[in-house]
Design a protein around this nucleic acid. Structure first.
Lengths: 151, 151
DNA sequence: TCCTAGATCAGAATTATTCCTATGTACCAG
DNA sequence: CTGGTACATAGGAATAATTCTGATCTAGGA
């Protein structure tokens, strides 16, 4: 199962497997289940169920560690806080609702653009990319101001 | 000239033309000149040259106003603060250096992806999109740790 | 020129994230 | 299995970007 693989990957990199780290990882994989993109605060709330005294600092340090180790991806949606997802479900991009903040995953990726970029700016060493499409999800279009407010 | 057009556009929308707003707009157009992507603080510093007592609040309110009016675009680069650019130079995307934070503009856009997204998620009302390529610019690759740190 | 809705200023408040330091613990060597 | 230590954690303070508040000012129409 994914959690075991991920724990193994951490160990390989010489990272200590504290119970807090394991629980954060478990939540990223199981609670989020490829469906939600959790903010640090949401993760903190979930971890607190088992580790009532875990600090915000530990959540952030752990998430940043996971990002560095390639186990998590950081998503900056336009609602003021970073969100995180497990990185073991393959590379993908997002369709983000500007009202409710929820994100759906997209099955395609503009990777041909990387080649074009490499051609256009030869000296630049490309390490990653992000593609986001913004708009309003079906649910938020039904609510009165989902599609009609200009502010 | 662009500044006049932009001021006219603001007036059309019933927005008051205060000297502070005109100066912020002038800076976005002239000082930035399609080359830099300015943070609120950088803009504040530049406006202070002429309006020494302008407040941060006014800068932010003005920039948010310009974004709402379609005169400015908001860019969230991964260095912790939003940056702004004049929106009258056409639609484009960015190649962002992870070390120095500088961004270059790209001449192409993965717009065909929007059609694919529309096909894949029919109920979603698309209003915009963002594409960013990350990496290290030639200058930052020369500095020792530009290409070799894993953090 | 006068009035007033809306803008500005100054600083306090808010929010996300990181830093600090004393204490706790994972895990390697013995 | 046990002890030592390098690294992790908790808790709270610090930082930094952005927004709010309330008093004062002003752009632009009458």
């Amino acid at each position: 199962m994914k959690l075991q693989e991920a724990l193994h990957k951490l160990k390989e990199q010489g990272v200590r497997l504290t119970p807090q780290r394991q629980e954060v990882l478990r939540i990223l994989i199981e609670e989020a289940g490829g469906e939600e993109h959790l903010s640090a605060e949401e993760i903190w709330r979930l971890v607190r169920k088992r580790y009532a005294s875990i600090s915000f600092d530990t959540i952030y340090r752990t998430l940043n560690l996971f990002v560095r180790c390639g186990l998590a991806s950081e998503l900056d949606f336009p609602d003021g806080c970073r969100r995180f997802e497990f990185a073991g479900n393959g590379h993908h991009h997002h369709l983000v609702c500007l009202k409710c903040g929820r994100a759906e995953e997209l099955a395609f990726c503009p990777e041909d653009c990387l080649i074009r970029a490499q051609f256009e700016k030869p000296g630049f060493k490309i390490t990653g990319h992000a593609f986001k499409i913004y708009g309003y999800c079906p649910k938020c279009q039904q609510v009165s101001d989902g599609s009609s407010h200009h502010s």
